[in-house]
Design a protein around this nucleic acid. Sequence first.
DNA 1: GCAATATAATTGAGTACTCAAGTATATGTC
DNA 2: GACATATACTTGAGTACTCAATTATATTGC
Lengths: 138, 138
Amino acid sequence: MSTIDQSLILLINLSKAQAVVSRRFDKLNIYGIGFTEFIILYLLHESAEGKLRRIDLAESTGLTASGVTRLLLPMEKTGLVGREADKRDARVSYATLTDAGKQIFSNTKNAAENLAAEILPPDKLKKADQLIGLLAGL
Amino acid sequence: MSTIDQSLILLINLSKAQAVVSRRFDKLNIYGIGFTEFIILYLLHESAEGKLRRIDLAESTGLTASGVTRLLLPMEKTGLVGREADKRDARVSYATLTDAGKQIFSNTKNAAENLAAEILPPDKLKKADQLIGLLAGL
DNA sequence: GCAATATAATTGAGTACTCAAGTATATGTC
DNA sequence: GACATATACTTGAGTACTCAATTATATTGC
C-alpha cells in the first residue's frame, strides 16, 4: 500500500528507468559516441535540411543551451557535426550533420535499436503508444 | 516518418522527459532536499522497518552503490537519515529514516505530489498502470 | 530612433553522478 | 580449513551535465 500518488510513483520509476537505460546505452561507446550523441545525430538526421538550431536541439533533448554547446564541441572536433550561421539571425548557430556523422548514425542505428528492443521488447509496446505520447509531451 | 524503431523512440523520449522532470523537481529544494533525496526518504518510509540496505537503495533508485554512499553522506549529516549495522552481516550498512527525515518527507510529500500532478495530470493516467509496470520493470 | 525586454549562444564554476580500485566480509567447493 | 569467488561499501578521479553570468542580437512599444 503506497502512501503517495500514482503520478509521483510513475515519475520516480521514470527516473530509475532512465538511469538503467542510460547505463545500458553506454555500449554505444564502441562506435565512438554515447547515447546523447546518438540522439543528436538522430535529430539532425530526421530534420528537414540535416541541420537544427542549437536551441532546438536543447529543447528536443531536454538539455540546456549550455549543455548542447558542450556536447557539440567534441562532436565538431571529430567531424560528426558541423556549424553553420543563419543568414538572417546573427544569434543563431546551426548544428549540421556531416557525412561522417551520417555514417556513424548508420553504423550505430542497428545497435541502438537492438539495445532498445532488449530493454523494451516490441510486443510490450502494443499498448504503450500512450506512453510515447505522454513522454513526448513533456 | 521516422527511421528508427518505436522502442528506441520511446527511450529517447524517456531521456528527455526525465531531464524535464528533474528540472521541475528542483523546486523541492525549498524543503532542503532534491528529487533524489525525496525518493530515498520515500523508499525508507515505505520499507518495513524504516530502513534499507544501501545496495537495495541503489537498486531501487538506479544509482550505483557509490552514488548512494555519496547521496547519503550529507543526509546523515543533516540528520534525515541514520546508519545501522547488521547483526549478521558485517558488510551491510543500513540507511534508516530518522524522525527528522519523516518530518521532511511529510512536509515535502504534498509539494512533490502537486508537481507530479502538474506534469502528469491524473486523468491522463487512466491506462497508465501498464506504464508504471513497464518502467518499474526496468 | 531609442530603450526595455527577449532570445541565442557561450563560458566559468559548481553539482550529481559513474567507473575503477580498494577493503572487508560472506559463500561455496574441495 | 584453505582458497576462489561473490557481495557490500567506500574512496579517488573522471564525466556529463546545470546554473549563473555574459555577450551579441532581435523584437516590441513608444
